[in-house]
Amino acid sequence: MKIWFLTPTFPPVRGGSETQAFTLASGLVREGHSVSVLTERYPGSEPFEEQAGVRVHRVRTDPERWQSPDCVPWEERVFGLLRDAQALITPDAVDILQTFCQVGAVLGAMMKSSLRCPLVVTMNETTPQTDPFGSARTRLVYGHLPYDAVVAGSAAYLGQALDHGADPDRVHLARYGIDSDLYGAGDEQEIHRARVWLGVAPGEPVILLVGRFKERKGQRELVRAMARVTRRHPRARAVLVGSLNSASVAYLRQVEQDIADAGLSEHVLLRTSALPFGSLRGVYAAASVVVQPSHSEGLGLSAIEAIAAGRPLVATAVSGLSEVLESCPGTVAVPPKDPEALAEAICALLDDPRAADDGARRAQAAVRREFDARDMVSGYLKVYERLRAAGDAA
């Protein structure tokens, strides 16, 4: 099959949705299919490149385009990408059009009839109802767009689709999966390089949080928890690793202020500079404990990655993450927005490293069964093949 992805961000941009799109695309290529991606062109990136056999086409959507004297800025912002898409995607070059967010679904809905191909949508917005007109927009996307199928990456995303008016007969579950070979115990050199990048000394316990700097990720709760953790483990260091892509500079400043107010500048470190995509293996391997104190998640790929790397995980029992915690015995669940409970769970793992490692091994075995990228790819292919067969029969 010839499959086109529409996604606003794609590696080397890092994040759960980007990892999912790349893992799916490269998995489809390994199964013998052709995958092309239309995405944003960032400074320093090329208009075209290949990643693991995936053809990536990048176009610019920056303000310079909007300010051209021959365009109306509103129209260019909303419809400008259609011109790029039409130049790249022709009806004979696509069998399936796949999108990964609400704006992608809207663009795909405008394109599908001209391309004469099925439209499959996957949503990665965790709390779209919190955006301006978010609930109405989400009901429009799920309840009225002419897509052929929704593929949900978790039970939480499936529930979001049904709650906002999606036709149950067109909603399918294919849980997000990872290539577990990319994770696991790093070698000594990888761990040394990671600890240097993280800014921690040999022997210092590392509490790691990986996630974009946005309020729902719970970084501020970890800062508050560290005030308690350091009383029992004075050498412990928390490192918050994340990007500002689809995030909040204002929230990052709040986190920085919290660290300063608590006098924790030596114990809580921030790392916002980019790591090469796929290089988190050594970072996870360097961690003593990984935490995911989110207020909400669609699933929580960072948590899955940490478990696959064999690290003890503490995560909040919220939608999405609960699915991971329940599937992987040996992980530790805490209530959301509770720094005291988070601190106690971290300390318990640091107090008894042998028990922590035993739990991590049990969880690692489970995550490799429950969240395998091959199962995700197979789930998408079943949907694609069913839609192609229905189109051929018509």
Rank of each mutant, 00 (worst) to 15 (best):
V290C: 15
E297P: 08
S302Q: 08
G298T: 01
A286Q: 03
G300K: 00
S296T: 15
L280T: 02
H267D: 14
A303C: 12
I304V: 15
V289G: 07
G278D: 01
Y284V: 03
S288H: 09
A287C: 14
L269C: 11
H267P: 10
A274Y: 10
E297R: 12
F277S: 13
S302C: 14
S279Y: 07
A286C: 08
V291F: 04
A274V: 10
L299A: 00
T272P: 06
H295A: 14
S302F: 07
F277I: 07
A285M: 03
V290P: 04
F277R: 06
A286N: 06
S273A: 14
S273E: 15
R281M: 07
L299M: 13
L275D: 04
L275T: 04
G300Y: 01
L270E: 06
S288C: 09
V268C: 13
F277P: 04
R281L: 05
S296I: 14
R281Y: 12
T272A: 12
L270Y: 06
T272V: 09
S296L: 14
S302R: 08
R281K: 12
I304T: 03
H267F: 15
S279R: 12
L270N: 02
S288W: 04
Q292R: 12
R281D: 05
V291S: 00
I304H: 00
V268L: 07
T272H: 11
V283F: 06
S296H: 15
F277M: 10
S279N: 12
Q292L: 13
V291G: 01
G300V: 00
G300L: 00
A285G: 12
V290I: 13
A274W: 08
V290S: 11
G278I: 02
S273P: 08
P276E: 06
Q292H: 14
P293R: 03
P276D: 09
L275E: 05
S302V: 09
A303N: 10
S294C: 10
E297A: 10
R271W: 06
V289Y: 03
G300S: 01
L280A: 02
V268Q: 05
A286F: 03
P276T: 05
S296W: 11
L269W: 09
S296R: 15
S279K: 09
S288R: 04
G298P: 02
A286K: 04
H267A: 15
P276Q: 08
S302M: 11
R271S: 06
A286H: 06
Q292E: 11
L270D: 10
P276N: 05
Y284G: 07
F277N: 13
A285S: 13
L270P: 00
R281E: 03
I304F: 12
S288V: 09
G278C: 03
H295P: 09
S294E: 11
V290Y: 13
E297C: 08
G282M: 00
G278R: 05
V289M: 02
Q292T: 14
S279G: 12
S294F: 05
S288K: 01
L299H: 02
L275V: 11
H295D: 15
T272M: 08
A274C: 07
A286S: 06
Q292C: 15
A274N: 09
R281C: 05
L270S: 03
V289I: 08
L275K: 11
Y284Q: 04
L280N: 00
L301C: 07
A303Q: 11
A303L: 10
G300Q: 02
F277L: 13
A286L: 03
S294D: 04
V268N: 03
A285W: 02
